[in-house]
Simulated assay, not measured.
Amino acid sequence: MRPMLIGAPAIEPVSLAEGKSWMREDASDEDQLIQALIVSARMTLEAYTRRFFVTQNWRLALDDWPQSLSATSTLIIPYAPFQTVTAIRVYDSDDNAQTIPAGTYRAPPGGDGGRLIFTAAPIAPGRSRDGVEIDVTVGYGALASQTPEPLRRAVMTLAAHWREKRGDDAEDALPKSVMQLAAPFRRERLA
Rank of each mutant, 00 (worst) to 15 (best):
A124R: 13
G103N: 06
A80F: 15
N96Q: 14
A102R: 01
E133H: 02
A80C: 15
Y79W: 07
D135N: 03
Y105G: 00
T119Y: 02
T104F: 10
G114M: 00
P122F: 06
P125L: 00
A120N: 11
G110Q: 11
D112L: 11
Q98M: 12
V132W: 06
A87C: 08
D112Y: 05
D112H: 00
F118E: 09
F118C: 14
V90A: 06
D94V: 11
I100V: 12
A124C: 02
P108H: 07
G111L: 15
Y105C: 02
D130W: 08
N96E: 10
G110C: 08
G113K: 04
V85T: 01
G110H: 07
G110V: 02
I100D: 01
I123C: 00
T86V: 09
I134D: 00
Q98L: 02
T99R: 04
D92Q: 15
Y91C: 06
D130V: 10
T119R: 08
G111F: 14
P122H: 13
D95V: 15
I100H: 10
P109Q: 05
I117P: 04
I117Q: 07
A124Q: 14
T119Q: 07
F118R: 12
P109M: 03
I100T: 07
A80I: 14
G131E: 09
S128K: 09
D94Q: 10
I100E: 05
T119A: 06
R115P: 02
P101L: 05
T84S: 13
S128I: 10
T84K: 12
R129H: 04
S128N: 09
G114W: 04
N96H: 04
P108L: 12
P109Y: 01
T119W: 00
G103A: 07
G103H: 05
D94I: 11
A97P: 08
P101N: 05
A102Y: 01
V132N: 01
Y79R: 10
Y105Q: 05
D92N: 15
A97T: 12
D112G: 08
T86L: 08
I88L: 06
R127Y: 14
